[in-house]
Design a protein around this nucleic acid. Structure first.
Length: 430
RNA sequence: UCCUGAGUAGCUCAAUGGUAGAGCAUCCGGCUGUUAACCGGAGGGUUGUAGGUUCAAGUCCUACCUCAGGAGCCA
């Protein structure tokens, strides 16, 4: 008997095959019975007729949602079947009858679904999101790999804060304190001096008590860093990357985005070069004109980001934030040292900041001064200062939040669906 | 940490201060092409927890717990 998978069932037209999987739903109509079988690659309708044998029919009628089975049958096209193909069942091998599967084919609340995240992943919607996620990660890697960037991993355990200000998860490291990384950037700068164009791609941890639809405690970030590059260079790099990964996601997953996730892809189709570039000062003026409760000198809130992004039909760059609200390593703007050569990319439709980056301080004396001003432990930064002692160089980079980007591409209400097992303020399980 | 809202059957939700109910799920029965199938029947409850007001509390009051959305902070 030929083993087959639902995803490629068309190859077996007219032949008898064996499928293995889980029962998604059963519908019975007296003398005919429909099993919707899910095998991880897709779902297919399997029909069992009473004329095929009393024993087979009785056995099939006892199936419950998520029971595991092996089903043999003949593949044939049928316009009435979802997906266009169906299986006329000739044999049924029941592996286990599942009892009381919690997620029924009706509506459920998010708390209940999150408690059952390990089962929720079986649903068509989550299947679609995880498929696009895997694709997005591949497209991002392809983008950098094809441009001569080297993927250099940065550590998850770090001896000190990268930016000092945000809250870190502290762990016991054989009697010493160690922290879970909140960015690979400082290491990226060392790697850039060794390999010129580098990126890291890994998990990031923020012990912030943020509880919004844009926040995860554990999330994935891709961070490129480029030697002998400035602010304008990495803005262009970020722009090229977004255009490519959004374009490829749309090209590859349009049926999932439109069909399963009901994404209005028109917004994604407009993601073309060039993106608008606003200075912080210009953005402030727009917010003032729109009557936002924003104060010049502070960072944008979620509402401010939405107000700015709705001015444009594509993602928008905001650059040259005040140095006071950016990290200690941001290079000051030569035209106005109160401002920094920093940039954020705001996604459309209120999805907010998906990229943050800028040009780094490369002058030793200035960096030492900044470390002191920020009250950071100078000793822990000696290796970082070495990068300015031994062949310092102008360099810049950024970080892209994978989950926020995916949320934007898929058009989701909340980032918690973009990662298989989300860690949130009040949730560590499953 | 703060603001707002919500906790009732396994799930999603109803119930003017006066006998706690429906749909789905489960079980039984019916139906020869179903599309979250449909039709009939059955079982299923310490109304988040602890107090209080009242003849009477799911409903009103207080505290706490949990969850949701948001603020601050950030990708």
């Amino acid at each position: 008997m030929q083993a087959a998978e639902v995803g490629t069932i068309g190859r077996f037209d007219g032949r008898e095959v064996k499928l293995t999987g889980w029962v998604y739903n059963v519908r019975s109509s007296g003398k005919i019975l429909f099993i919707l079988l899910r095998d991880g690659t897709g779902t297919i309708q399997c029909i069992v007729e009473k004329t095929a044998g009393e024993e087979l029919f009785t056995s099939a009628s006892r199936l419950t949602q998520e029971s595991s089975v092996g089903i043999t049958g003949t593949v044939r096209p049928d316009a009435r079947a979802p997906g266009g193909w169906e299986l006329r069942v000739t044999g049924l091998d029941v592996i286990q009858i599942a009892e009381g599967y919690p997620i029924t084919p009706k509506e459920h609340g998010t708390d209940f679904l999150m408690d059952n995240r390990h089962l929720w992943l079986r649903s068509q919607r989550q299947h679609a999101i995880m498929t696009v996620r895997a694709g997005l990660i591949r497209f991002i890697r392809d983008f950098f790999d094809n441009r001569g960037f080297l993927c250099i991993d940065t550590p998850v355990f770090t001896p000190n804060a990268c930016e000092g200000t945000t809250t870190l998860f502290e762990t016991d490291y054989f009697g010493d304190k160690a922290y879970l990384t909140q960015s690979g950037q400082l290491y990226n700068e060392a790697n850039a001096a060794a390999f010129r164009k580098v990126y890291c791609f890994g998990p990031t941890f923020r012990a912030e008590k943020s509880k919004t639809r844009r926040h995860l405690i554990e999330f994935w970030m891709v961070e490129p860093e480029v030697a002998f590059a400035g602010l304008d260079d990495i803005i262009e790099l970020a722009e090229d990357m977004i255009v490519e990964v959004v374009g490829r996601s749309l090209e590859r997953y349009r049926p999932l985005l439109e069909g399963v996730l009901e994404r209005d892809v028109a917004m994604l189709e407009r993601v073309r070069k060039p993106f608008p570039r606003l200075s912080y000062d210009e953005a402030s003026a727009i917010l003032k004109r729109k009557g936002a409760a924003f104060e010049y000198g502070s960072d944008f809130g979620g509402t401010d980001e939405t107000l700015l992004s709705e001015e444009y039909d594509r993602p928008v760059f905001v650059h040259r934030f005040p140095s006071a609200i950016k990290a200690f390593y941001m290079q000051p703007d030569p035209a106005n040292p109160a401002l920094s050569l920093s940039v954020d990319l705001l996604a459309s439709e209120g999805y907010g900041e998906i990229i943050g980056g800028g040009e780094r301080v490369h002058d030793l004396a200035l960096l030492e001064k900044r470390i002191e001003e920020h009250g950071l432990p100078k000793k822990a930064f000696q290796w970082y200062l070495d990068l300015r002692r031994y062949g310092t160089f102008r360099h810049a980079g950024f970080g892209l939040g994978v989950e926020r980007t995916l949320s934007y591409i898929c058009g989701l209400q909340h980032v918690r669906e973009t990662i298989p097992y989300p860690r949130l303020l009040n949730r560590l399980s499953p």
